[in-house]
Write a protein that binds this DNA or RNA. Structure first.
Length: 388
DNA sequence: GGAAATGAGCCGCCTAGGTC
DNA sequence: GACCTAGGCGGCTCATTTCC
């Protein structure tokens, strides 16, 4: 690893990229949070979930829709899908242009209200671009292929109710601290949402075991050990179980103080060595993943700070997005330079095994990232039209 | 159509101050 | 003194409105 730890890397970023800000450490920490989001997004894209993803949707609490929370990423069933070819000569591709072309093909847009987003503007791509919304769904658009003068667009309608949600958190280390970070308090906000969103709820029994409870529409319910019940729901085709179920996934950056060292000084990912803060997160999300120091610093070092010529463009885009007096950020989960998007996708595809190795599964214990991929694939392929 | 302004909301870092 | 919580705040994104 090029840097001893992400905390060292954060200092390098503070010095090299964020020196102009009032508080360089804070600004570089904030940027690291954005990078955790980007890595997660491009992993999901590479897993083939691009058209299921929505970004920052207000998600209602289960059984209490008066309270909603914006969640980083949510995965939604696709209820309708269509393709369009449009001429690239337009300066930018707006919702208006797409909707007009779509209407001309006979696509029924009754009940939809237009959004004013731009799919492509000044070579900046909008990821998960919403072009219209209706009471029960969102209409989004992505670029399927980009050849010659033509752009092939994929228009897809997502049902408003997601089947999975993701929250990404980076938690930094504070100078001189030996315990878990105090900033965990902010990460707990995400943990709260994870506990309130899904119809599958968590309760403890008297001996301390985590149980799951899920209500059916007639008021009857099932109680079983949590992970067992969760798996049953994911692999069932029972409308009653799947209807309001949302798989919750938390992704936190590693932190030197998250885990108590074992007596021989080694790191252990078994639960008895978690600090309290990590236990809170692990028991709140269905899945809790670590993005390791190694992974985050690999990404930053190889693609952003010291890239080979093939990736130089990423460095340029990143630096121009965070420099003093920058005009527009084109290196975030939503706004991404289109060429940077292409390079990132290629890197993630060519190095998928490496990228996947950047993640450690904290909970459920004994499961791997491949299991998560399988569970998401299983949920994606449900017959949602009959369920919802 | 698109840039600029505005406001809501989130992220992450840090400090003050309380408790044991 | 170690540990913990509440709250401030800089930085930023995103959606909506306003203006050109």
């Amino acid at each position: 690893m090029a840097y001893e730890s992400v905390d060292k890397l954060q200092k390098v970023l503070a010095e090299e990229v964020f020196k102009h800000t009032k508080d360089p450490k804070k600004a570089s920490g904030r940027a690291l949070g954005t990078l955790v989001e980007i890595i997660t997004y491009y992993l999901l894209k590479t897993w083939g979930l691009n058209n299921q993803i929505s970004i920052e949707r207000g998600l209602a609490e289960y059984g209490n829709p008066d309270i909603t929370h914006n969640v980083e990423y949510s995965l939604h069933p696709i209820v309708r899908s269509s393709f369009l070819t449009i001429d690239k000569s337009e300066k930018s591709i707006t919702s208006n242009i797409i909707l007009k072309a779509l209407q001309a093909t006979g696509f029924d847009l009754t009940g939809f209200e237009r959004k004013n987003n731009q799919l492509l503007s000044n070579n900046i791509l909008r990821n998960a671009c919403t072009i219209a919304t209706s009471e029960n769904s969102f209409l989004l658009c992505s670029i399927k292929s980009d050849e010659g003068r033509n752009l092939e667009l994929h228009i897809y309608e997502q049902n408003r109710k997601p089947y999975a949600m993701f929250e990404c958190k980076r938690v930094g280390v504070e100078e001189g601290m030996t315990k878990g970070p105090q900033t965990i308090e902010k990460a707990k906000q995400g943990a709260y949402v994870a506990r309130m969103a899904s119809s599958l709820q968590k309760i403890r029994c008297d001996v301390g075991e985590m149980q799951g409870i899920i209500y059916k529409s007639d008021g009857s319910y099932i109680i079983k050990p949590y992970v067992k019940l969760m798996e049953e729901i994911i692999f069932s085709s029972d409308k009653e179980l799947l209807r309001r179920f949302i798989l919750t996934i938390g992704i936190v950056s590693n932190h030197g103080n998250w885990i108590k060292k074992t007596s021989d000084g080694e790191l252990s990912f078994s639960e008895e060595h978690f600090q309290k803060e990590l236990m809170v997160l692990a028991q709140s999300y269905d899945w809790l993943l670590f993005l390791t120091d190694q992974g985050l610093s690999d990404f930053i070092d190889k693609l952003l700070l010291n890239p080979i010529p093939e990736f130089q463009f990423l460095r340029d885009t990143f630096l121009s997005s965070y420099k003093e007096d920058k005009k527009k950020n084109q290196f975030t989960k939503v706004q991404m330079n289109i060429e940077a998007d292409r390079i990132l996708l290629k890197y993630f595809k060519d190095n998928l095994k490496t990228v996947e190795s950047w993640f450690n599964v904290i909970s459920p214990s004994k499961k791997s990232l491949i299991d998560l991929n399988n569970e998401l694939e299983e949920l994606k392929n449900k017959n949602w039209k009959t369920i919802l």
